[in-house]
């Protein structure tokens, strides 16, 4: 029996993807799934945003007439001026903590390096993220 790391659905041995949520079930050499609580520290504003839904959430800025809302709306932190896209990136805590750039205009950077869009990249405690010019830090508390 395999238990899906994302939705905890039970899958038959040998299954490759979860039939409930479509997640990859390969468990080789992943960085660990975060058990504690996660928050995002906005460096320029000296403000910490606690994350409640740990499984998967999107970062971006809300804009009028937009039909997909980001889970975490950064518009009140000068997101527009700093070049954050409406749907900028997604952070997931399955098969390890990862960030995926969702094809943003100004890119996502991990510790100063721009990441390729649409591919999950592992992140960990203390990593410095840039969404465009907005600086964030990943904080994990046990």
């Amino acid at each position: 029996m395999i238990i899906c790391p994302t939705c905890h659905h039970h899958e038959v041995q040998g299954a490759l993807f979860c039939s409930e949520c479509g997640s990859h079930l390969g468990q080789e050499d992943q960085n660990p799934v975060i058990q504690g609580s996660l928050s995002i520290y906005l460096i320029d504003h000296d403000h910490e945003l606690a994350v409640t839904d740990l499984e998967s959430f999107t970062l971006g800025r809300f804009d009028e007439g937009q039909s997909i809302m980001p889970d975490i709306d950064l518009s009140s932190y000068q997101a527009f001026e700093r070049g954050v896209s409406r749907l900028h990136a997604m952070i997931r805590n399955e098969q390890g903590l990862t960030i995926t750039d969702l094809g943003s205009s100004n890119g996502t950077y991990i510790n100063g390096e721009r990441v390729e869009p649409h591919i999950p990249h592992p992140i960990t405690q203390g990593d410095l993220l840039n969404l465009g010019k907005m600086k964030l830090k990943i904080l994990i508390q046990d």
């Binding site: 939705c7 479509g22 039909s67 997909i68 995926t100 969702l102 094809g103 649409h118």
Partner: peptide, 24 residues
């Protein structure tokens, strides 16, 4: 719920339009 999951997966594959259509 399942369509919502599908939309999430599509978003992470870069299929933004289809993902959005599903959310609607």
């Amino acid at each position: 719920k399942h369509l919502q999951h599908l939309s999430n997966r599509l978003l992470s594959l870069g299929e933004n339009d289809l993902s959005q259509a599903i959310l609607e």
